[in-house]
Design a protein around this nucleic acid. Structure first.
Lengths: 159, 159
DNA sequence: CAAGTAGCTTGCATAATGCAAGTAAAGATA
DNA sequence: TATCTTTACTTGCATTATGCAAGCTACTTG
């Protein structure tokens, strides 16, 4: 119910706008799971490495829906389930998230964690750092999600 | 002194890494002020539209320094002052911030704030949305900051 | 019809942020 | 040189955000 308070913006700066909308500990993690990993249900989103608490997940999903970043629809096959998917506005977060990946991957502190992702995923991360112009890739990512898929779908199936 | 607790990362995901390092309410605002507006002193950073509290600013500057995003040097002309400037790692935040601007500027909620920036600044925002490949611009921005300048220096002087 | 599963809520603890007042050291002013 | 101002903070306390564990209801599965 509560979670993020609905207070007026601190300024009209577009940087500040994005910070106030997006910069909490969980909103972008959830968007990553939907956009990159194709997680669509509450329980799928709950059982991830970062171990979000169930009350926080509920409040964040409500928030993301209110902000127009995701929509929820009842699962036609199982009336207990709701399916969450990204809106166009949510899909527009992909460039931000890709640049975050590039930033992390460029600096030693992240490598010190000895990250152990799937091979295809790590390949993608390396490309995020080295590629001069990431926009062709980003556009492909967006199209995938618009068509009901997710960014890592080929990687998860294959390797 | 306190502020951000030094707890272990929730996962080895590079998205999560960036979120844990950067996603609080103030770190990126301060980096914006340094990178885009050339703010270098404590009092300059304090007196901005978002009205950061003085204790938060102090703790965030300490944090950003510990994370290697900024360095502080004593002002040779005034021994009360310290000058804060971005490191290369801090400069690497520019693409993230630019994509945040593009995200905000693309969607109605931000425009509903009726933002009133300087003309040159608004021009830059519009370009951030429309330009297909932002990397040439981003590279120019980085060079400017590396050379001791800041992104809006031409705009602030002119209009 | 009993046992699980999915998607929550509730209550309480800790951490992050916000506000106001105060302070010491350095520089500016009379 | 004595006073006033500026700069970069700290301290104490209030509020908001996040974290943890337990419980709960509608639906599905065996």
């Amino acid at each position: 119910m509560d979670g993020k308070a609905d207070i007026p913006m601190r300024s009209d700066c577009p940087v500040n706008f994005a910070i106030e909308k997006l910069c909490d500990k969980w909103s972008l993690v959830i968007m990553r799971d939907i956009l990159f990993w194709g997680k669509r249900t509450y329980s799928d989103l709950l059982n991830r490495d970062e171990r979000i608490a169930t009350n926080i997940l509920a409040s964040r999903l409500e928030y993301l829906e209110n902000e127009g970043l995701i929509v929820r629809t009842p699962d036609p096959n199982d009336r207990r389930k709701e399916l969450f998917e990204a809106t166009e506005r949510g899909i527009d977060l992909i460039p931000i998230i890709v640049e975050m990946v590039a930033w992390s991957a460029k600096h030693p502190d992240w490598h010190a964690l000895e990250p152990k992702g799937l091979p295809g995923q790590m390949r993608l991360v390396r490309r995020a750092v080295t590629t001069k112009n990431k926009y062709p890739t980003i556009e492909k990512f967006k199209e995938k999600v618009r068509n009901g898929g997710y960014i890592f779908e080929d990687i998860v199936e294959g390797n």
